[in-house]
Design a binder for these strands. Structure first.
Lengths: 178, 178
DNA sequence: GCAATTCAAGACCGATCGGTCTATATATAC
DNA sequence: GTATATATAGACCGATCGGTCTTGAATTGC
């Protein structure tokens, strides 16, 4: 549900949801229960989409370094210009609700762990293929990348140009690969 | 004003502010005008504090690499455990309000630019001293670090341990220095 | 053609929002 | 001691919040 994206949980009012879902008030409550449950559904879908995309990009069907490159390119695309201004449901939710809402906190933490694991897997395969620079550990490099891409989403809120974001991502990846 | 930190702008209600400021409703409005103006004051102070701290850490009184190390150590400290869960007023505000609130967006963008400039300065000094690894450009490395530390704030919301965060920051810095 | 069902539109509810205003208490001036 | 200024506590305002319920129109099965 895209309406939660840029406005956040508290910032999204029922009329916004009704307009976005084209449902009546009664139907929405019959279908989802309440606002919080609807939000969790949206968050779950957002997370599932993101993880599925990573499975494709970082999966065994692609060379690991190529996968990392397209993974980063996707983040660059989503965090520059107007796409970047739109924001990220997951990061906005993490900052707004994690720590007050156990349902949310578990999902956010799980997502970061899953993302880190997928990145570590791709990096391990890259290392095994001898494509990593000397001294690069897959586990810590994966954590660095998680922080980096989530940070991209934050600074993306100010709408940087795609070229600078892409150059930044390239510069980081260059520090990891041989 | 610490009450905006973890609850955000929309999530902070007037009674919260009254309790935090120990002011009466009338006095608060006489002193600050309205909630939005008070919030901007809090945000300005938060930004000024952060920039001042960076001036100390990354200033010419310290060796540039040492400065970068203490800068990162400060972020590790503020983003792990319960301090991490507390969150960051700036990142939360960026995700919640930038894009809908021009006053906020300008301040956020300015902060990121200023932070990047200070980091680039320290990195340039490090490069001049021959302490940077081959192929590291101060400008892009500065942008990488901005994204990394803001990403740390995001994943810090799930309360990671200090040791892993510190190891991650060390691993990143190791990719930059000789 | 008619009864039964479904669903959208929106009235309605108590609670709470940000913001204003009044009444009261306290401190100060002299 | 009295008049004045200050600041507090909290009543009060319209608007809006999330959530429920009624009404009426459209659809379905037969």
């Amino acid at each position: 549900m895209g309406v939660f994206w840029s406005r956040g949980y508290h910032g999204t009012a029922l009329p916004d949801l009704l307009r976005a879902t084209k449902l009546s008030r009664g139907s929405l409550y019959a279908a989802f229960g309440d606002k919080h449950a609807l939000f969790l559904r949206a968050l779950d879908r957002y997370i599932a989409d993101a993880l599925a995309r990573m499975d494709v990009e970082l999966g065994p069907r692609h060379a690991p370094v190529d996968g990392l490159r397209t993974f980063l390119a996707g983040y660059v695309d989503r965090t520059s210009g107007s796409s970047g201004r739109r924001g990220c449901l997951l990061v906005a939710t993490a900052m707004e609700l994690a720590g007050h809402d156990g349902d949310v906190e578990g999902r956010i933490g799980g997502f970061f762990k899953a993302m880190e694991a997928k990145l570590a897997g791709a990096l391990s395969r890259a290392k095994a293929a001898g494509e990593l620079a000397a001294g690069v550990e897959p586990a810590s490099a994966a954590r660095i990348l998680v922080c980096f891409v989530e940070g991209l989403r934050v600074v993306g809120k100010t709408g940087p140009t795609r070229t600078t974001s892409q150059a930044t991502a390239d510069a980081l990846l260059d520090r990891f690969i041989r």
